[in-house]
């Protein structure tokens, strides 16, 4: 075993002029997602220069600053719009968007559905922690009905978004869900998401014990990981379950996997066609 493995790989992709440990809370799954993403990029052997990480605002948005890629930390909810411009301007680049659930599903919901409809060749990595963590624990569109937050002290009234159903409905080429407990599976998903053409959506369930857990029966980070271990069920098994068995269970795995060409590819071929014709 002479290969460098595990965190030693990751250390090579971290920015050496940044101070570690990072700003996220102890036990926050976001670091695990970042590690997983780095391993996926390493597995695919993509040069650092060809990777652009575009992040939104929130805890997830802070990840970009720590990695030695081209990194763009954008405005709240708008990461996919920047990513769309970058991909169209230079289709050669691997553009990966890191967003939170509030970022991608609430303020950026419109951009998410249109990126999916357009099938732009970008990987959307949605870090779902069911809460607005950075700003102190307010409700997000992924906050489960009935749970308690700073802005829903008497219980969340509205239903939460099903990211997978939303992305599929909007036409994403690849849709998958993983958790930070099931890391190897998540890594496989990311490898596939990045290498597919078109728009890929990966929802990573990454618990926030600080802002969500403490108010909702999960006292420590470990409690949250135990919940993940128990709640997550591979999609094929989930499908065989009865409605009753499905209660409080979360299907994980790959939900959509197609190979439709991305918007940028379709644009380039249209351009070549029009230019060959010499205009209209």
């Amino acid at each position: 075993m002479n290969e460098i493995t595990g965190n030693e790989i990751i250390h090579q992709y971290l920015r050496h002029n940044k101070k570690f440990p990072h700003v996220l809370c102890a036990g926050c799954g976001h670091g695990i997602v970042l590690g997983t993403l780095i391993r996926a990029i390493h597995t695919l052997a993509i040069p650092k220069d060809d990777v652009v990480i575009v992040a939104g605002i929130g805890c997830s948005g802070r990840l970009a600053v720590y990695v030695d890629f081209n990194t763009v930390h954008t405005t709240h909810g708008r990461a996919l719009t920047f990513a769309t411009g970058i991909k169209m301007a230079n289709p050669k680049l691997n553009v990966i968007c890191i967003m939170g659930d509030g970022d991608a599903l609430s303020i950026g919901g419109n951009h998410l559905i249109h990126a999916a409809r357009r099938n732009i060749g970008v990987t959307a990595l949605i870090l779902n922690n069911n809460i607005y963590g950075m700003t102190g624990g307010q409700s997000s569109p992924a906050t489960p009905e009935g749970s308690t937050t700073m802005t829903n002290p008497y219980g969340q009234l509205d239903a939460s978004f099903d990211t997978v159903a939303l992305a599929r409905g909007a036409g994403a080429n690849y849709v998958a869900r993983g958790t930070v407990f099931h890391v190897k599976r998540l890594e496989k998903i990311m490898v596939e998401a990045i290498s597919r053409p078109g728009f890929s959506v990966v929802e990573a369930i990454t618990p926030c014990h600080t802002q969500y857990g403490r108010k909702n029966r999960y006292k420590t980070p470990v409690d949250m990981y135990k919940w993940l271990k128990k709640a997550a069920v591979p999609i094929d098994r989930y499908e065989e379950m009865t409605e009753e068995q499905r209660t409080d269970r979360l299907p994980i795995g790959v939900f959509v996997a197609e190979d439709r060409s991305g918007f940028e590819e379709r644009y380039l071929s249209l351009q070549a066609q029009m230019r060959a014709k010499g205009g209209k």
């Binding site: 493995t5 595990g6 965190n7 990751i10 250390h11 971290l14 570690f20 440990p21 990072h22 996220l24 102890a26 036990g27 926050c28 799954g29 976001h30 670091g31 695990i32 590690g35 997983t36 930070v180 407990f181 890391v183 190897k184 990981y225």
Partner: peptide, 9 residues
């Protein structure tokens, strides 16, 4: 190693 959120192990 895989689950250390801070790459400390």
């Amino acid at each position: 190693e895989l689950h250390c959120p801070d790459f400390a192990i």
